[in-house]
């Protein structure tokens, strides 16, 4: 009877993940085409375009980190402040005479440690991740200012700024290589390892995950560690790119990073989505910003366009899902906030 059309509709909905990626790819292609043809100085013989990525791949690195947390149905608002903080810590260590790479490593490890603390506070006291990371964002901001003082160090060794920042291998910027490695690693981590599977499962249904033997708390904690770690790496990359640090240099990255995660198709309530979508969305969003900036539009207006893309994309996605009979937002909201089970 109605089996036929119902199945076709179901088929479309099932592939919504691929469908979303395809749309992103089309969007990216259209965007690149438009800017290359229509905006002077964007294409730059190809290398020019590739070099644009230096201005936004730090967002992508941070987005991957937040992505882990969002897969678990949590959120991390502290990433931006974390990146600033890590940059300052690294620079200060370097000023004290620590080898720059060692300083970077220590700073990133401190970031991971702070991520661990976030995770432990959130899971042990059963607090909202939004709340804890909001508080932490304030605290990290103060710490960064206090450590860095008015005039944080700058002028890092050339080897550092070129490898982690503005250098390139042939025509390919070093940052793209770093991003590719990190991106590949994170896609595998989420979709091909036991940890990633646990993360996705608990993002889908925290209670069922507990009943299936997933160590929910520990998996969430590890997501926060990764988030801290990646925010730290982003902080190092920013420092290298600009050859300086500032106590608020990373703060402005947080919102674009979350935007990239959501635009990448990851469900803000956890579980659904693909990490590769986040990588894609980074380029979509980043080239959009850069293209507009080169076109002569202000940063704030470019952000506005980015925000618009986010809202429209999500409205379309949710609208299509509703029509397709997928679980409604209200359903998922209720599931998200349903009592966490037995003590």
């Amino acid at each position: 009877m109605a089996e036929g059309p119902a199945r076709i509709r179901r088929g479309l909905r099932l592939n919504s993940e691929q469908w979303w990626m395809t749309s992103l790819a089309v969007l990216l292609a259209a965007e690149l085409l438009y800017f290359s043809l229509g905006v002077q100085g964007f294409w730059g013989g190809g290398t020019g375009m590739l070099n644009q990525t230096e201005y936004f791949l730090d967002i992508g690195i941070m987005a991957i980190g937040v992505g882990f947390v969002i897969f678990a149905g949590d959120i991390d608002l502290s990433c931006g402040a974390m990146a600033s903080f890590v940059g300052i810590v690294m620079a200060e260590l370097w000023k004290q005479g620590v080898e720059i790479w060692v300083a970077a490593l220590i700073a990133v490890l401190i970031a991971a440690l702070i991520g661990l603390i976030h995770g432990l506070i959130i899971t042990l006291f059963r607090l909202e991740s939004l709340l804890v990371t909001l508080a932490s964002q304030f605290i990290l901001g103060s710490l960064a200012t206090a450590i860095g003082g008015g005039y944080p160090p700058y002028g890092f060794p050339h080897a550092f700024t070129s490898i982690a920042g503005t250098g390139s291998v042939g025509p390919i910027p070093a940052q793209i290589i770093i991003f590719a490695v990190i991106g590949w690693f994170s896609v595998l981590l989420v979709h091909r390892t036991a940890f990633g599977r646990s993360l996705v499962l608990l993002g889908h249904n925290r209670d069922a995950a507990r009943y299936t033997g997933v160590n929910v708390s520990w998996t969430r904690v590890r997501a926060f560690v990764l988030s801290g770690l990646f925010a730290g790496i982003a902080g190092i990359v920013i420092a290298a790119t600009y050859n300086s640090v500032r106590d608020d240099l990373g703060d402005s990255l947080l919102l674009p990073a979350i935007t990239a995660v959501v635009l990448g198709g990851v469900d803000i309530f956890g579980g659904r989505g693909h990490m590769a979508g986040v990588l894609f969305a980074t380029f979509v969003l980043g080239f959009l910003y850069q293209g507009l900036l080169i076109e002569g539009i202000s940063q704030l207006t470019a952000n506005m366009v980015g925000g618009g893309v986010l809202v429209v994309a999500l409205a379309l996605k949710i609208g299509l899902e509703r029509r397709g009979g997928g679980l409604s937002f209200a359903h998922r909201l209720r599931a998200r906030f349903s009592p966490g089970g037995v003590p």
Partner: peptide, 14 residues
Amino acid sequence: AGIPPIIATLGSLA
């Protein structure tokens, strides 16, 4: 539009 509040207002913040 049914967009989760945190995302919708993140967009409108921009």
